[in-house]
Simulated scan of single mutants.
Amino acid sequence: MIDLNCDAGEGFGIYNFGVDKALFEYVTSVNIACGFHAGDPVTIGKTVEMAIQKGLCIGAHPSFPDLMGFGRREMNLSFEEIRDYVMYQIGGLYAFAKSKKARITHVKPHGAMYNMAFKDEKIARGIAEAIYLFDPSLVVVSLPESKLLSIASDYGLKTAREGFADRNYNDDGTLLSRKYPNAVIEDPEEIASRTLSMVDGKIRSISGMEINIKVETICIHSDSPNAVSIAKRVREEFAKHGIEVMGLGN
């Protein structure tokens, strides 16, 4: 059993970004941008509605306050700022979900916040405390062996280890930075193969090293040029190998 997730609602105003509607046919959980790196009230509301119509698990996708940089720039913030920014964003999404009699099931940080929480205890603790104070039933999504998952467990929170079939990995299990041209993989066949490997607990790093990786959820990026073809191909391979999918909140 595995969850397939995608980041969603990452447009802003009249600008669309990603292929949410088509991609929602294949994923089981969605992580909705909460306005700090992308998204606005109308976009959030529409994305929540689409997720409900497809029966998907809805998660918050909070970020550093970096709309200009799409949340991909590192920031030096205090523990209190991180905690309060994350809680504020979860609360915004919660209002839309509650208004439609739906619930939030998980939280997955975005961009630089996500990557920095792999090693930075202050950031990880700020995120975990925000989730714990808001709703300790929420699932925390992060890379395996991250500081965030470790601290979240200390708070008694449920966690889900995440893999990225369309991203290259460093030897230490972190994601290869997007500043490198080969950070993102675009070939649906290669991605489908890597996804199956992840389900089996293995992935090859950029250097060719085989890394042991145990994941409960796998992300397909909605901003990939052929994201829908990738998701469709992954689901075909899952069906072929008898792999069942289930959302993070089920």
Results as ranks from 00 to 15, higher is better:
residue 40 D to Y: 02
residue 6 C to N: 05
residue 60 A to R: 03
residue 155 Y to A: 10
residue 79 F to M: 10
residue 210 E to N: 11
residue 96 F to D: 05
residue 167 R to S: 06
residue 118 F to E: 06
residue 199 V to H: 03
residue 178 R to D: 08
residue 236 E to W: 13
residue 126 G to L: 00
residue 240 K to F: 13
residue 179 K to L: 00
residue 49 E to K: 13
residue 147 K to V: 13
residue 117 A to V: 11
residue 27 V to I: 14
residue 78 S to D: 13
residue 106 H to P: 04
residue 78 S to R: 12
residue 101 K to L: 14
residue 227 A to E: 00
residue 19 V to Y: 06
residue 43 T to Y: 02
residue 3 D to I: 12
residue 24 F to S: 10
residue 66 D to L: 12
residue 152 A to D: 12
residue 23 L to S: 06
residue 41 P to A: 01
residue 90 I to C: 10
residue 168 N to K: 08
residue 175 L to Q: 00
residue 132 Y to E: 09
residue 17 F to G: 04
residue 181 P to R: 04
residue 235 R to L: 03
residue 34 C to R: 08
residue 186 E to S: 02
residue 154 D to H: 08
residue 175 L to N: 03
residue 221 H to M: 04
residue 211 I to G: 05
residue 184 V to F: 00
residue 166 D to P: 03
residue 195 T to A: 08
residue 127 I to K: 05
residue 85 Y to A: 13
residue 143 L to D: 01
residue 5 N to A: 00
residue 216 E to A: 11
residue 166 D to Y: 02
residue 133 L to V: 12
residue 27 V to Q: 03
residue 228 V to N: 06
residue 123 I to C: 02
residue 126 G to H: 01
residue 223 D to R: 03
residue 117 A to E: 12
residue 216 E to D: 14
residue 114 Y to S: 11
residue 102 A to F: 14
residue 210 E to A: 06
residue 208 G to E: 07
residue 210 E to W: 07
residue 219 C to H: 11
residue 19 V to R: 09
residue 161 R to E: 09
residue 70 F to L: 14
residue 184 V to Y: 01
residue 21 K to D: 14
residue 16 N to S: 15
residue 66 D to S: 03
residue 128 A to R: 01
residue 18 G to Y: 10
residue 186 E to F: 10
residue 236 E to D: 15
residue 113 M to I: 10
residue 212 N to E: 14
residue 21 K to S: 11
residue 220 I to S: 00
residue 239 A to W: 12
residue 32 I to N: 02
residue 199 V to N: 00
residue 17 F to E: 09
residue 79 F to H: 15
residue 86 V to L: 10
residue 239 A to V: 15
residue 104 I to T: 01
residue 26 Y to K: 12
residue 55 G to F: 11
residue 236 E to P: 09
residue 64 F to Q: 01
residue 119 K to S: 15
residue 153 S to N: 14
residue 126 G to N: 08
residue 249 G to H: 02
residue 73 R to L: 11
residue 194 R to F: 09
residue 107 V to R: 07
residue 1 M to W: 14
residue 85 Y to Q: 13
residue 162 E to G: 07
residue 81 E to W: 05
residue 167 R to V: 09
residue 199 V to E: 03
residue 155 Y to Q: 00
residue 144 P to F: 05
residue 103 R to W: 12
residue 244 E to T: 14
residue 43 T to W: 07
residue 70 F to V: 13
residue 112 A to K: 08
residue 24 F to H: 02
residue 221 H to L: 07
residue 41 P to K: 00
residue 176 L to S: 04
residue 114 Y to M: 01
residue 245 V to F: 15
residue 167 R to D: 05
residue 25 E to G: 06
residue 120 D to G: 04
residue 52 I to F: 06
residue 138 L to H: 07
residue 211 I to K: 07
residue 86 V to E: 08
residue 163 G to W: 02
residue 82 I to T: 10
residue 220 I to P: 01
residue 23 L to A: 09
residue 87 M to R: 06
residue 241 H to R: 14
residue 15 Y to F: 12
residue 176 L to P: 04
residue 225 P to L: 06
